[in-house]
Design a protein around this nucleic acid. Structure first.
Lengths: 131, 131, 131, 131
DNA sequence: GTGGTCTAGACCACT
DNA sequence: GTGGTCTAGACCACC
């Protein structure tokens, strides 16, 4: 698992770490019980502060993506992530709304937006057989 | 055009204003040459500081959504927004990626994510006949 | 003499009027004693406020570009504009400096900047024989 | 790098900051990856409000002159400024036109204007060997 | 009336 | 410490 950061992004570093780990899980590159590097080693690997990595891990733990054992270290949550509830779906739609709107304003057709979306979805579909 | 803010949101207020105006344009509730309220009046209408509104307007102007006319005031850009280029499409996909990933992790199926997306898309499709 | 305005410009309207009249004089399209439209007629011609035109004319008068007679109306100053002094030259250089700097930053060569400058200069040189 | 302001100038303070940094880059006193002072420290150094400095920095960032790095702070853009396109050249000529016109009206010869221009250009040419 | 600029002071999130 | 955001209040130039 490779974490690549953009220090000029408007997204915070810790937030980029979170996103990439979630993407890793969604792509099944990271599977339940897979180990994650320790806060210390990840921090030194990518050259950032301990606190920043820690903040990311705490958030992931909070959301149920990972488990932090004192001894075993950090692992992907063995029982998977809590399932989406209807509240989450509503939040997701609200997140999507302005993104879609922007695309439409920029003269993307409904079809081409749907197509872009499908492309992203397909990135995760690859290797689905291994499921 | 009605702007409704969520002061508890983690999105900045100026950012919410931007989003809602873009949504308004995408829904064709705001059409080219339509006037927008002045910085001052919008600010007092929604009970915020005029600088916050100004920041939103400056951003929208920068992105080509609106135009600040010395006589007409603030209006929706008469020639529409600059069309999406391939760079934008790539950015859009990068924006979508972590959102989709999160949904998948929460055990949403590909189909249900696609369905949610379609729902959002359809919100804008309504009234397309007036086009 | 045709005045064309950009109501979205960051330059004020009155300032655009001033510039265009000065350009007209420099191009010798406007010559000493040539009449200019009255404040009223110019204002209604280009659809702007009287005050705005008046402000432009007052400035031009102040700088010696025009004369405003109660009876004869507005005319280009018969004796030409006060000549540049060394102070003016210094001001001109200070105006030029940031413009040139910007071009250099954008990777224009010294030669291409000089060429652009020459092109502008040549616009005024045309018809110099009539001098 | 030294920023000197003219509080009596008709140019806005933030605009003067922008100009001086651009001049610094053009003169190669500021080179790619060179650090710039933080918003706060520059503001207190030159005795102005931090928002004013921030406005200048935001503009420079927007135009690609600088980069705001989460770790390194504010630095001159490592890959240089986006190159001039033909649209920019046209804008530049339009900027130059009224300036040149004014000089000509004040009876400066084509040659002396060209000479003044050359002087400014030469200010930047000094030290070109270090290139 | 408008937008543009500047100030002062505050809080927050991030590193 | 940093930048990002928001507020409140002010002055100016322009229309």
């Amino acid at each position: 698992m490779l974490i690549s950061l953009d220090f000029e992004s408007k997204d915070a570093i810790y937030s980029q770490i979170i996103q990439q780990i979630i993407i890793g899980i969604a792509k099944r590159e990271l599977r339940p019980n897979d180990p994650l590097p320790s806060v210390r080693s990840l921090a030194s690997d990518i050259g950032i502060n301990l606190h920043t990595v820690n903040k990311a891990y705490q958030h992931l733990k909070q959301e149920g993506y990972i488990l932090i054992h004192r001894q075993k270290g950090v692992v992907i949550h063995p029982e998977g992530v809590p399932k989406a509830d209807s509240e989450y779906k509503e939040t997701l739609k609200q997140t999507l709304r302005p993104i879609v709107a922007e695309g439409l304003c920029k003269d993307l057709s409904y079809e081409s937006i749907a197509a872009l979306y499908q492309e992203v979805l397909d990135e995760f579909r690859e290797g689905e057989d291994e499921k």
